[in-house]
Each structure stands twice: as structure tokens, then as C-alpha cells.
Nucleic acid binder design. Structure first.
Lengths: 136, 136
DNA sequence: TTCTCTGCAAATGCTTTGCAGAGGC
DNA sequence: GCCTCTGCAAAGCATTTGCAGAGAA
């Protein structure tokens, strides 16, 4: 992400560490996952800084906030159009890069102006499905 | 909902009020919306009872918990397959009863066993779009 | 030097939990 | 009468905020 070089945001070691952790990350981490990961290198980092950086990235379209976990917000540094496959047991999230044809007739929109779309597939990941099988 | 007559759950005035409020409700209320609505008739009801009842309904498939609002969980008593149109400004949620063809090739599933799907459309409702226009 | 960013700690808001008494069945 | 449900109050988490000092530009 060469974003911070172009715009007027201060690059700090903490932010660099967060960007490094997020770059190419496909684990859809929560704020606390990010905090824990960065804490390994920067034990003094605070959650406020993590939330602060997330906010800046979100505002500039570099990070998506996902509402796919009931318990906490999850973040996705992949901001290209894609969808998600979610394990309902362990909450693992996998990207699905497929374009679906989702036409909605005008009269079903009730006057809404569409700006985006997102498909969530629910299921059991291989690991969780295995555990379920063994318990039978 | 004739559910409680068939199963072994105690029907209480509070639960009856909650069921009555939810029956046919298309507003996708939060737990607190339900609490506020019931409070009009039953000022003494507690949030714990609302959450408790929501839990029972969820466990028995009579209520869907929606993760479509960053700030709070929302609930939907319509458990027939449908999708949602969400206003990103005021968080209004409208049902979309359209069946989409969402085929996912086996190799994109990574071994997941699919159990469900849900399409979220984001946009601006007529009211919020109007406000946006006027501010220009 | 300037002004944003950081870390700490407290506050906030939603949701959960413990518990004793109330009340369906 | 039994046992679940209710209301209250406190606890639990994720997230936000206030503020003084640190540090990037």
C-alpha cells in the first residue's frame, strides 16, 4: 500500500506494523486480532492506536469493515469486489471471487439507490464438519 | 406463531407481548427496539427477559439474528428465505423476496459444506437520498 | 516547531449472567 | 408444588473518548 506516501498522513512505526500485518492478509482479523499480532513486535502498542488506524484506513477505502461475526467487527484489506464463505461454527471466513448476476427489478427497490452488494454463504469448514461427523 | 402451544415452553404475558410485536413485523428491530415497544404495555419488563425470549426464539428457528448493523444485532421474524436492502445512512432494512442463482463451483468452496446464503444490497433509502441531494 | 499520533485510563453501549422471588402449568 | 421465567443489578466485552506527552514532518 503506497497510500500514505501520497496523502498527508503521518507514518508511524505502529501504523507501518499494522499495514504490514494487513497487507495480503486473508484471515479477516478483528481489531483485537490485529492488536495481538502487532503486540508481538510492539508490546507497548495500545488498542486505541489500532482502532484509530483502522478508522483512517476505512475512511480512505483501504479496509472493509465486515459485519459477518455477531461478536466483533472483522476487517478485510482486500477491497476488490468479492464475497464471503463463513463457517458458522468457528467463524473462519474465506473469500469467494465470483461475479454473480444480481438484478433487482425497480419495483423491489422501493426507491432505494443501490451502491453495493455482498453475498454471504454460510456453511461448515472442513475442520468443523469433521468434528460434527465424529460426534455422531 | 402457534409454536409455544406445541412445545414445552411457558407462555408468559411478557413473551406473548414480544411474540405479538414480532408477528409480521418488518422493521428488523434490535433487542432494545423490542424492549422499548413492549415497555409501552409492560413498563416493568426487563431487558433480560427480552434477550432471554430472543434466545429461545432463535434456538427454535423462529427468529433470525441479522449482522447487518455495526452497532447492534437486529432481528427478523420472517424466516422464509429472503435477502435484504440496507440503507447505509439510517440503517433502514427492507426485505427482498427474490431467488438468485448463486452457484459456487466446487473448487471455490475449499471443502466447505454450504448450509445457507444471504445477499445484502447496500444503498440509500428515498429519505436519505433526498437529504443528500439537498445538501449538494 | 507544529500538529497529529500514541498510550493510558475511564467511559460508553450492547449483551450476558447471578440470584431470589414470582408465577405458569 | 415444581421448575422455569422474570426483574434487578452487576459483570463482561468490544469499542470510543479525553487528555497530556511523544514524535513525525
Amino acid at each position: 500500500m503506497g497510500y500514505f506516501e501520497e496523502k498527508k498522513f503521518k507514518m508511524t512505526p505502529q501504523r507501518a506494523a499494522i499495514l504490514g500485518f494487513l497487507d495480503g492478509n486473508k484471515s479477516h482479523p478483528s481489531a483485537d486480532d490485529i492488536f495481538e499480532a502487532i503486540s508481538v513486535e510492539y508490546p507497548m502498542i495500545s488498542r486505541a492506536t489500532v482502532y484509530n488506524t483502522i478508522e483512517v484506513l476505512k475512511d480512505n477505502g483501504l479496509l472493509w469493515e465486515l459485519s459477518i461475526d455477531d461478536e466483533r467487527k472483522r476487517y478485510d484489506p482486500n477491497t476488490n469486489m468479492h464475497h464471503h464463505l463463513i463457517c458458522t461454527k468457528c467463524r473462519k471466513v474465506v473469500d469467494i471471487h465470483i461475479e454473480f448476476d444480481l438484478q433487482v427489478p425497480e419495483d423491489a427497490l422501493g426507491g432505494f439507490k443501490l451502491t453495493g452488494r455482498h453475498v454471504e454463504f454460510y456453511g461448515l469448514c472442513p475442520e468443523c464438519a469433521d468434528i460434527g461427523d465424529k460426534q455422531k
